[in-house]
Amino acid sequence: MTVAFLQLTLGLYFIGILLSLVYLLRRSDVLARVALATTCIGFAIHTVVLAVQVFSGEVGVTFHKALSFFSWSLILVFLLVVILQRLYVLGAFILPIAFLSLVSTAVLPAETPVLHPMLRAVWVHVTLSMLGAVGFAVAFVAGVMYLMQERLLKSKQFNVLFFKLPPLDFLDTLNQRSMLLGFPFLTLGILTGAISAQLTLGSYVNWNPEQLWALVTWVFYFVVLMGRVTVGWRAKKAAYLTIVGFAGVLLTFLGVVLKGNGIPVS
């Protein structure tokens, strides 16, 4: 049942992506509205699937669920931004990330759910980390869009995409704000991760790829944010840096996958 719903969600998101991509090349807003509607329906079903996954059925935290949550939160942020800012163009950039993370839950090998007395701590760790990742994903998207718009402006290509993409300072602000939102979540995520590692494994730090990349990513974003405040790493530089930073996030994800079965196991 859940699987069928998940497939339906994926299908709807996929249609949303296709429509959003075609919208990039068309002048009219109609396609974007249809894409938005499709994504909304997909999101509603996704919400049900996620609720079912979390509150009933299999107990425990898996990376599948975490990714599904990441995807869901990303779509939620996307819907909020689009509805508040009418920034339809965002769909073509954010939806693929949400879609791919949800697809990976179907592609990645099934995991053994983690059963542990201190389950609550793991939940908190996963939720916070994923919210941090959502922030960085949006910053990444803003960075990509910034660089595209910057390139179009510099090369004077006033095409449809140029008209669709928002102003540079908007993208720079979006980049900054999503980073500022993501960073505290990542910080708390790492802290709770360390605590849950202490509870489950007996030590705060055990240098697995997940922890290593999470730390590297944290330090990186910390430097980027500091650089922004102190020496003016903004605009183009900030865009490049957030793209690199998101690679760190993805490597952390990869670290989790490579570890085999997700969240710290005893």
């Binding site: 718009q149 402006l153 140029f162 993409l165 928002p166 102003p167 540079l168 300072d169 908007f170």
Partner: peptide, 9 residues
Amino acid sequence: ELAKKVFSN
């Protein structure tokens, strides 16, 4: 119009 593509406000 072009200025508005750099500065939103």
